[in-house]
Nucleic acid binder design. Structure first.
Lengths: 214, 214
DNA sequence: GCCAATATGTGAGAGGTGCTAACTTTAGTC
DNA sequence: GACTAAAGTTAGCACCTCTCACATATTGGC
């Protein structure tokens, strides 16, 4: 099993195959699908088009993926890896246990959604074959775990503490909703535009300072 | 223009046509699509299958809708009407200006998402032809307006007040994110399950009481 | 009441898509 | 060098979207 998804550098948009065997088809298909999802929306993608972009026949993808949903799952998996990385990097840029670290994680999340709205939407719209993909579940929990760690450090409590979990979930809900609303009505938020950093700091403070109940 | 979407009662699942002319095809197609979206996921729907359910040929739908996205937009439009209604009803069940009214609106929102996760997701996943449908935009703002009204009454400020707008948006983000996370990992929220009402009351209080900045 | 005009249905069909089957080429192993 | 498995190919079925030409109701003007 060679799940080497990240072998190609992301900048290589179209690297035609070098012979009969492509050598890097799987990764390149994922990259092509990611691009298609981003430009033509989550539905405006077809396996055939992705194969065309990679310069192979329309049947070739099925040597690497069972079916269409599995390709999308591949894209989601790769996206979740990247999301986790930017979240961790954001947290690492601030002192451990600081409110800024928590807010920075949220900002990274929002920025990711804004940078790749199509992929972001795809991550949270996988209904078909979502359950028979425990690795995605695991990766999702991994992302959440980054936030939980920061919150736990901030409150000086263990990550397993119910209060930590609850407040983390509240923060996540908030950031998640903000991200979605943000990419849905892009730049047209009905009200005045929002300074994300101040916004997230305010939210983080409110949620981490308030009393816990219910 | 006869946009009479709500002529059929929702309980009539399959009302076969009565003659050559169907008489109520448009509404029944929307109902069929709504059901398909709910049971087979937002992607597992086809115009042909919807037509089959309504007992007409696969070309008939195109007499009522320009193309596939327009049918989905019809479903979304109808869903937004219903969403607004339940939000208004929830608000009306509590004293004007009370915190309970605000929380009840949020609960109605979450309940809607839980009751019709497929449709709910569809509402917020329309990328194709989303912009050339100003009525959907308007209806979305209408739903938001219900919340804004309640918040304004609660704070005793006019609805146009920037602070009212900001806090409403915060609440909306929260409820929206909670709804999405809720239907994504159904009942498996990693942490202990959540009492929605207490949760929403806590949030509403925190957001409406806290100081406004940024 | 009659007759256009229009609305709403039908079947046939072009072109695209998902996926499979059977075959061919390449790479790795003994 | 032969065998095997991996990774491509073409051909093709079933389905889907959408259009076109045609058939049939409904409606409004006279």
């Amino acid at each position: 099993m060679w799940n080497d998804t990240s072998r190609t550098d992301a900048s290589a948009t179209v690297t035609p195959k070098t012979g009969y065997h492509h050598g890097d088809l799987r990764a390149q298909l994922i990259a092509a699908v990611r691009d298609l999802v981003e430009t033509h929306g989550p539905d405006g993608f077809s396996v055939a088009e992705a194969a065309r972009r990679a310069g192979v026949s329309s049947a070739a993808p099925y040597k690497h993926f069972k079916d269409r949903p599995e390709i999308l799952r591949g894209v989601v998996s790769e996206a979740m890896d990247r999301l986790r990385l930017v979240m961790e990097a954001a947290a690492a840029a601030h002192p451990t246990g600081s409110l800024e670290a928590v807010a920075a994680i949220g900002l990274a999340y929002v920025d990711f959604a804004r940078a790749e709205p199509g992929v972001f939407r795809l991550v949270f719209s996988l209904t078909e074959g979502h359950e028979d993909a425990p690795d995605l579940q695991t990766k999702g929990e991994g992302c959440f775990g980054v936030l939980v760690q920061a919150v736990a450090a901030c409150l000086d409590l263990p990550p397993g503490n119910p209060d930590v979990q609850r407040r983390s979930y509240m923060l996540w809900s908030f950031v998640h909703g903000h991200s979605f609303l943000n990419i849905d009505m892009k730049t047209k938020v009905t009200t005045a535009e929002i300074d994300d950093w101040g916004y997230l700091m305010t939210i983080s403070r409110a949620i981490l300072a308030g009393s816990a109940q219910s």
